[in-house]
């Protein structure tokens, strides 16, 4: 198993997870942000159960988008500030693999808690059990897309004036396919149409972003580090 200890991909994941474990508040803040945003919606719309069940997939998915955005600003910024990112770029290891590792770590820290929290919030919206499972599955396929595409935006806006607001402006339009297929899968199932098509398309978007996003983030980081 020596491979696991020397692969830059695994090392980057381990390092970022360790850093996250030492700053637990960041994970918890993003997760609670997700919970609060989703809980505000019924307060704004009203307690009509039928309506809430209808908007639940969209509400949870939009909450997940916003929660992911929150963590993205800090994906590369601390490493950029203390020079670690530059050392990564200069190291003989593959920079792309290191960045891919950071993206995976970001998903484990910000995406996975959202997936696990979703069914509890879904119950608040009176979603039936079958839809809860489907919602988790769609978030499980979809939140990695959010981390992957978000990493490109985070790399492009690294060290740029007004980075946070700019990041949302760049990234949110690109999240639309994930939002449509992810929330659509649950909605289609609720309407009795079958969710397979939506989930397949969500998987296809995941594969495409897995292929392009680490490469594009690396290219954008190299531009930022010049």
């Amino acid at each position: 198993m020596t491979f696991l200890h020397t692969s830059p991909f695994i090392l980057a994941i381990r390092r970022d997870l360790l850093l996250a474990a030492r700053h637990k508040t960041e994970i918890v803040t993003a997760l609670f942000f997700f919970v609060i945003v989703v809980n505000l919606l019924p307060l704004g719309i009203g307690p009509d159960t039928d309506l809430l069940r209808k908007i639940a997939p969209g509400a949870l998915w939009i909450g997940a988008l916003l929660a992911t955005l929150l963590g993205l600003q800090r994906l590369f910024a601390p490493d950029h500030a203390d020079g670690t990112l530059e050392q990564m770029a200069l190291s003989p290891q593959s920079f792309t693999l290191l960045i891919a590792g950071k993206i995976v770590a970001h998903w484990l820290v910000s995406g996975l808690p959202v997936v696990l929290m979703a069914p509890i919030l879904g119950v608040q919206f009176d979603l039936p059990g079958r839809s809860l499972g489907l919602l988790m599955l769609s978030l499980l396929l979809g939140t990695p897309i959010l981390s992957l595409i978000g990493a490109v935006g985070a790399a492009l806006t690294l060290g740029v004036r007004g980075g946070g607001a700019l990041l949302s402006l760049l990234i949110l339009p690109l999240y639309i396919p994930a939002l449509i297929f992810g929330a659509g899968a649950v909605e289609a199932d609720l309407a009795g149409l079958g969710a397979e098509g939506h989930l397949s398309l969500l998987g296809a978007v995941l594969v495409v972003s897995l292929f392009f996003a680490p490469w594009a983030s690396t290219a954008a980081l190299r531009v930022a580090l010049e």
Binding site: V152, L156, L174, P177, I180, G184, L201, V205, V208, V223
Partner: peptide
């Protein structure tokens, strides 16, 4: 940075178009 964004965008435009259509 703009060039990278434009290229990411142009890959996404057809995906967005079809997703919105469905």
């Amino acid at each position: 940075a703009g060039a990278l964004l434009a290229l990411v965008g142009v890959i996404n435009v057809p995906i967005i178009y079809f997703s919105v259509q469905w």
